[in-house]
Design a protein around this nucleic acid. Sequence first.
DNA 1: ACCGTGACGGTAT
DNA 2: TATACCGCCACGG
Length: 126
Amino acid sequence: MKSVRADLPSDLPPAQRALVRVVASIPPGRVASYGEIASRAGLPGRARLVGRVLREAPEAWALPWFRVLRADGRLAFPPGSRAFREQARRLAAEAVLVVNGRVDLARHGWERDLDELLWGMGGDAK
DNA sequence: ACCGTGACGGTAT
DNA sequence: TATACCGCCACGG
């Protein structure tokens, strides 16, 4: 084996474990911002930690990392980059379209209070 | 121990 | 709407 960096969920610090749990619970077809993930995990203001965790997260965990975007709905990767295209592709597979490098949060956001208000029926967000 | 970096975010301009 | 700053914090050099 090489280094013992990011693996073993057992060694994972509580904070990071909480973040992983939240990311894993993002419903398919929905997206959430790094900041929202952090807040939901009880770590407000730690958005950067979310990015770090996702970067280090082993493939084996199969986390829905592609459902995590920046607060303004734009993908966190450089437009056109490999990761960017991959994320856009995976989102599209869930009917979440990326237009101009961004996703319409009001439409696909995990927390779409505004939408529920407008449509008067959020029969799934929770 | 200091410093630059980064899958971020909110505010001001 | 886009850019510039600044706060935040774990890491690696």
